[in-house]
Amino acid sequence: MRKGQKKIAVINYGAGNLGSVVNALTRLGYQPLVTDSVFEVLKADVVFLPGVGAAGDTMKGLEAIGMADAVKKLVAWRRPLFAICVGLQVLLSSTEEGGHYQCMDIIPGEVKKLPAGLKIPHMGWNQVKQVMSHPVFTDIPDNTNFYFIHSYYAHPQDKSVVAGTTEYGLEFCSMIIKDNLFATQFHPEKSGEPGLKMYSNFLKIASS
């Protein structure tokens, strides 16, 4: 499918880094639709769920516009979905952030605070070890640096969904792949050329 024909929706729930995600997709030659409409999101061929900030606020923002249910539907339908940072965290069952907060429970597991003793947030470029062989890593060498900025990390129960891990006080899950669901703790849209490559690989997979 030619670039531009594919319907790409970027979910707008009133927060997050959606401008950066849109800029990255535009650079790759796509024309994403930024939308808060469940109807538009369910109609799209490919969906991005951006995220920056607190998981609780993100969940509230998504629920307020009925988007949490829409995301669950997309996953059930195996619609290609890419979730970023807090967008990844809200896929899990619950988070420790702000006490305890129920999340979407698409990926069973907890979101926990990074261990004490290190600077928080974990901010900057760190290596992603590829623990899964997958075409989304095409032309991206193992242990490539990606840009992180977060204080909590995902701990999925089912280790078979872990696609990448990163070391910061402990080895945590920095990337999840399950069927057509892709989620990164890091920000590909802020990770230079390897980040753009990852989005481009994902979009290729999504259109095949």
Binding site: S20, N23, T26, R27, Y147, E189, K190, S191, G195
Partner: peptide, 8 residues
């Protein structure tokens, strides 16, 4: 700048 530069 943000349309051309993909780092923070």
């Amino acid at each position: 700048v943000s349309k051309k530069v993909f780092v923070p």
